[in-house]
Amino acid sequence: MRTRQLVAQLRADLGMAAPLPPPPEVTRIPAPPSRIFPVKSASDRAGAAMSAFAKDAAQHTTALVGIGCVGTRYATDVVLQFQAELAVAHAAVAAELPEDWAESRGMLPLRSRVGDHREYLLRPDLGRRLDAASLALLRSRAKRDIDVQPILADGLSAVATMGAGVALLEAFSDACRARGWSVGTPMCARFARVWLEDEIGQEVNARVAVILLGERPGLGTGDGLSAYLVHGPQIGRTDGDRNMMSNIHARGVPPQQAGARLAVLVGAMLDQGRSGVDLDLSGLTRELGDAASGGYRAPQERVRLVDMSSQPAARTMNRETPR
C-alpha cells in the first residue's frame, strides 16, 4: 500500500489534478475454523457438534474421544487436558517411596536388588528379587507358614502406594482374618516388581501371596493400585499363574471394596488349590460383581483425575468450544 501512496504523491508533484483511483478492497480474511467434529453421514449436520454417540461414549472413559479438530490440529482445551494428564502420569512414574516410609507405618521395610530409581525403571529383572539385607530381615522377622502374605509395594506409582496403599492393605488383611486365615507380617517393598511376591511368598512359606502395588500410570490415572495374587508362590511362577485386579482408586474400585473382593479371590484359590488361568471364578459372580461372569457389564461413568474444563484459566483460554 505504501508504494501506491508514493505514486499518488508523485502524481500530484507532476501536476496531475485527478487523484489516484481508490485501491481495491482488501480481501476479507475468513474467520479461523471453529471446532469440527467428524461425521458419518451427510444428515449429521456437517459435524457442527459432537455426535450423540461420541458424547455418550465419552461419559464412560477418561480417554480423549470425540474431541473434534481445528484444521489439522487439536482444539486448545484438548491439548491442555492431554498435557495436564501426561504431567500427572510423568510425576507418578518419577515419584519415589521415601526410605523410612514403611518403617514409620509399622511395616517390615524390604527392597529389591535395584540400586536407584533410574535402574529400577531400566532393569525389571533386578526389581523381581530381594537384596541380601532384605532377605535376612525377612527370614528373621516375618511370620512363617501362613495362609496369606500381603505385600505392599511402590511399583510404578509411589504416589498411589502412599495414597490408598495402607487403606487397601488393612482392608484386605482384615477381610482375610475375618475368614479365619492366618495373615503374614505387614511388609512394604521399595523398587518392587510384581514377581517379587514369588520370592517373598516362598521364603515365608505362604499358601497365597498378594502384592499390592502402584500400577503403570496412564492418561487419567496416576494414583491407581493393582493387586496380583499367586497360589503356592515360588521363584519361577509366570503371569499365567497369577490373578490380578486393577484400577483400585477412588474413581475405580475403592480400596474397601477391593479388599473384600481380593479376599474372595484368595478364598477361591485356597479352595481350588490353584491360581491364574486355571482358577474357576464362574460361581463367584455375586461376590466379584460382573467382572467374573465374562458377560455384559453395564458401563461405568468415568470421572477425570484432572479436569481442565473446571479451571477458570483454561476456560477463558478456550474459545473453540462447539457452537
Binding site: R4, V7, R11, L14, M16, L20
Partner: peptide, 8 residues
C-alpha cells in the same frame, strides 16, 4: 492519464 495502477 499517467501513473494509473495496472492491476494484476
Amino acid at each position: 492519464m499517467k501513473l494509473e495502477p495496472i492491476t494484476p
